[in-house]
Design a protein around this nucleic acid. Structure first.
Lengths: 198, 198
DNA sequence: GCAAGGTTTGACCCCAGAGTCAATAGCATT
DNA sequence: AATGCTATTGACTCTGGGGTCAAACCTTGC
């Protein structure tokens, strides 16, 4: 009989992690409705049935995927250096958010911009994740405003505009080649900086 | 037998118009996948079957709906007064786009921001509609820049940012009450004007 | 090798929703 | 009232995809 409960648990966790990651990819690419559990299973080289061994259903899997997408992303921004002039830090944050969106998470759009393309049960959580994500930007902006380095017309409106513009970037950037893409992302970041110019 | 072919045609056109309008509403509210043809039929007090008398299928109906959504909207912006300082005209355009988005077309988001939530066949057309829509803003911005009244970092990036921010407005504005909503829309328009400040 | 789990399978049910169509109803016109 | 269109119905098929489950398959410890 199995004694080493820990090892079993670790293996299980690892499997769950891979499933969630794959699901997140697909949900990002094709949206909630556009993603069949069979697609997820296929990409993992297993059968649909076995997914139900780990998750109660599609919604639960989607919930986990959202959780990962949202918090990984936010975490990466939170890890960025927190010193230097607010303007520079904000610009770096914007640029990084855009780069992540374009290169890794076309899901951005669906996750942050169209919450109602997800089942009702998940919307509240999505809003929370987004609020936390926004907070990263809010903090820097507030500091900058307090220090007189930055200025905004209205904090909420600015946040909404920043977020919408950044998250939508994959739509028109992803078809560009390497160099042109980098320039497009820079242009967008520079453009958005005008929103907080003193 | 029916002689007056014209009257028959007119009636038919009118019925088509109503169907398309209703479909546009629903697609806007719930997206392509979220809208069943039976829902459209129900809102029109007819049966699903009769829709097929006018349209070959869901995609064709969606195509018509998109056409209406896109061109009505653009047309309304194109009708706005074309005199006065560029900054003021642009501000009016932004404000109007936002108001239409919030009050009439929550569809905005789905139409302009998430083209790939529609069937493949429609995407090219959606891009065209959006390009034409953008043109209204592009023109004013170019005039303003030429006249030295406005300045942009990069025209494309600016357009993308403007559009994304405006179209996403329903998401956070629509739950606000009358006055607060107006203020939020004003704030957003003012915020966005910073993007083109000289 | 053999228990006692943990894990995966594949066949299955079921439903929502797209699409079809023969029959029926609603009209103008004569 | 009869004729010949146009329009609508409702019952039907079919497919995709979510969800279930008993049986088979691994793995690990004894």
């Amino acid at each position: 009989m199995v004694r080493d409960v820990n090892r079993v648990q670790r293996k299980r966790d690892e499997r769950v992690r891979r499933i969630v990651a794959t699901a997140a990819e697909l949900f990002g690419e094709r949206g909630y409705d556009g993603t069949a559990l069979e697609d997820v299973a296929e990409r993992l080289d297993v059968t649909k049935g076995s997914l139900y061994y780990y998750f109660a259903g599609k919604d639960e899997l989607a919930a986990a995927a959202i959780e990962t997408l949202g918090s990984d992303w936010t975490a990466r921004l939170e890890e960025m250096p927190a010193t230097g002039p607010s303007a520079e830090r904000l610009r770096a944050l914007l640029r990084e958010h855009i780069a992540i969106a374009v290169r890794e998470y076309p899901a951005a759009l669906r996750l942050f911009l169209v919450p109602d393309s997800w089942p009702d049960a998940l919307r509240a959580r999505i809003r929370e994740l987004r609020a936390r994500h926004d907070l990263v930007f809010r903090r820097v902006i507030r500091e900058g405003v307090a220090a007189g380095e930055l200025a905004v017309v209205d904090e909420d409106a600015t946040l909404q505009a920043l977020h919408a513009a950044m998250s939508q970037a994959p739509l028109w950037c992803s078809h560009l080649a390497g160099d042109a893409q980098d320039r497009a992302m820079d242009d967008l970041a520079d453009t958005l900086m005008k929103l907080v110019r003193a």
